[in-house]
Nucleic acid binder design. Structure first.
Lengths: 123, 123
DNA sequence: TGTACATATGAGCATTAATTCATATGAAAG
DNA sequence: CTTTCATATGAATTAATGCTCATATGTACA
């Protein structure tokens, strides 16, 4: 809990490379920025949401269509879309009673493609 | 639980765009591939692990140094490193009693940079 | 071979999160 | 304005996950 908690593992001062630690600390992005990063990854780390993203990369779809494509309830999909909207991963537009979803920007697609490349190489 | 569970939300056949659904289904990556994707994102979606990755992007570090940089116990860091190793996000090398960790490949760095760009634009 | 130290791991606890069920919102048609 | 249908959301349950504590592994050095 506290910042000193790592001392309890008796990995004391002997093994620490002070210069490296100081240098890394100085260059690292801020904690806020890193939290935003993990929030973004969190929202794309669920298999249901990855399926939604993969589907929307192919075509704009309404909520019911998404549910049909990935085989889940409308409610479950709607809950997940809310999270994806929150991180600006998807956007939507209304057409009568129907709401169509699509990917919010090109970065999401780039991240997806880069990740598939990574996976292909380590398999 | 079942594949038909979405029917229970009475979002029946009326709103379905059969052609779009069939087309998307045909073009989507396999479920296995998408599961690998979500596993990769899962491992980088925790704030502790993002901090570890961000630190290692700057410099190779031993376990104790990582613990010191992010302010967590050696044990907690070691547990997280195990997960990162499992997805080939980090690699390590031994030097005497000390084990140094670094990022496994360039894709991880690319994904990180792309993600930071995305975050910068939506903020 | 016995001690010290860096790292790894198993078990338990506390928290987070995904799905379902029931219900609410909101637009269109009659 | 009432009904219908697409979507959204609140509450509850069940499952997954991170941290800590205790202990194990493995390397170096005396």
């Amino acid at each position: 809990m506290s910042i000193n908690s790592y001392e309890s593992d008796k990995c004391g001062d002997l093994c620490l490379h002070e210069d490296a630690i100081a240098s890394v600390r100085a260059q690292m992005p801020s904690d806020d920025r890193l939290l935003e990063l993990s929030d973004l990854y969190k929202v794309i780390s669920d298999s249901t949401r990855v399926k939604i993203i993969a589907a929307l990369e192919i075509s704009e779809l309404c909520v019911c269509d998404i549910a049909a494509v990935i085989g889940l309830s409308q409610s479950a999909v709607s809950h997940q879309l809310r999270l994806l909207r929150g991180e600006r991963v998807v956007k939507n537009r209304r057409e009568g009673k129907t709401i169509f979803y699509s990917l919010a920007d090109e970065h999401v697609i780039s991240i997806l493609r880069m990740s598939l490349t990574h996976i292909a190489e380590i398999s």
